[in-house]
């Protein structure tokens, strides 16, 4: 039957199409999150500051430092909490140490809460932009330079940044994402 064959081919095409669509969703979700700033993911590029400082508001910024499961690094936030005005330049310091005797590569991934804050959190410089290579037992001080956007919505009074160090020694160099 000719018409059967056509319909079958169309349906097989739809099946393959949906299989690929499943994979297409991976970048699509990321694109969607990028555009909307959802998911608390920060854009990992340095931003220029405009210079205007809004002294009428003071925002609490908190830092949380974690290591991923079984990552043998010591990672602590030296500045746990600070108060900044939108537009003002600020700096937060962290301490990180490789507790093993081997050289390791770590990558810090940041997540912002509330997620709406992600769009208004500008980093001029951050250790999370690069992979950190630490020799055995090496300790290091790392920091992030940042400012808050003056457009930060009024209802946001407190922003929490959570950094997690992942062990990527065995992985291919990954594009920071």
């Amino acid at each position: 039957m000719k018409s059967n064959r056509k319909l079958i081919l169309q349906l097989c095409g739809a099946t393959v199409g949906m299989f690929l669509f499943g994979f297409a969703l991976v970048p699509l979700y990321d694109v969607f999150c990028d555009i909307t700033g959802l998911n608390g993911k920060l854009e990992l590029v340095a931003k220029k500051n405009t210079g205007v400082i809004d002294t009428s508001r003071a925002i609490k910024v908190q830092f949380i430092a974690n290591t991923n499961e079984n990552m043998p690094w010591d990672f602590v936030a030296k500045d746990v909490e600070m108060t900044v005005h939108p537009g003002e330049n600020a700096r937060a310091d962290f301490f990180v140490q490789n507790l093993t005797n081997e050289q390791m590569v770590g990558q810090a991934i940041v997540s912002v809460s509330p997620s709406i804050g992600a769009k208004y959190f500008h980093k001029t410089q951050c250790f999370c932009f690069d992979r950190q290579v630490l020799n055995g037992k090496q300790a290091q001080e790392v920091s992030v330079l940042f400012s808050l956007d003056t457009d930060l919505p009024d209802r946001v009074k407190k922003i929490t940044l959570s950094y997690t160090f992942f062990d990527i020694t065995d992985l291919q160099p990954v594009a920071a994402n």
């Binding site: 349906l11 739809a14 099946t15 393959v16 199409g17 949906m18 299989f19 669509f21 499943g22 969703l25």
Partner: peptide, 11 residues
């Protein structure tokens, strides 16, 4: 089924 089983297969 044709629309979503392939997505499960992809997952």
């Amino acid at each position: 089924l044709v629309a979503v089983m392939p997505v499960l297969a992809g997952t």
